[in-house]
């Protein structure tokens, strides 16, 4: 196994620990982390009704739109967080180091202030992982085996074949 594989496995473990802690502290229903392009990195506590993949894509889009809006009104830096307070569930979205999107879905019974506080702490822990994550992304391209393309083409034919 080469270096980058070991490295990113380690990052994933650290992310997992930060998210578990965040979820426990906030008693959130679901906590997830995506990269800024909206691809899900890790999620904890999804329910039947919540699809973390869709939440990740939408949350990243939402943050990107807010950051652009902020830029349009002359703000140099967007605060990088958003809160939607619902009737039963609320959702808090925060950007971490322009690399990650952190999402917490929690019951409206939980105090928002608490969620904000623990998200800020989690963001501090995730911050040093961001650059390692970026590096791992750059290197993951180079970790596909040469037979991968052929195997994938076969799998695609099977999944989409005859359509």
């Amino acid at each position: 196994m080469n270096q980058s594989v070991v490295l990113s496995e380690d990052i994933a473990d650290q992310i997992h620990r930060v998210l578990s802690e965040l979820r426990a502290r906030t008693q959130a229903e679901c906590v997830l982390l995506a990269d800024i392009s909206g691809q899900l990195v890790e999620s904890l506590g999804s329910s039947e009704e919540i699809d973390p993949v869709l939440v990740a894509a939408l949350a990243a889009g939402e943050l990107a739109a807010i950051a652009e809006l902020a830029r349009q009104i002359g703000e140099r830096r967007a605060s990088g967080s958003l809160l939607h307070e619902g009737k039963n569930r609320s959702i808090y979205i925060a950007s971490v180091s322009d690399t990650f999107v952190l999402v917490v879905i929690f019951s409206t019974a939980s105090p928002v202030g608490l969620v904000r506080l623990f998200v800020r702490r989690a963001a501090e822990l995730l911050h040093p992982l961001a650059s390692q994550f970026e590096e791992a992304i750059r290197r993951s391209n180079a970790t596909l085996g040469t037979d991968f393309g052929t195997a994938l083409a076969g799998e695609l034919d099977e999944a989409f074949g005859g359509m």
Binding site: E9, D13, Q39, L40, V41, E42, S140
Partner: peptide, 14 residues
């Protein structure tokens, strides 16, 4: 593209 080695997932955006 990113590979999550813990979950063994390859993510691509098209």
């Amino acid at each position: 593209m990113f590979i999550n080695w813990r979950l063994r997932e390859l993510n691509l955006k098209i």
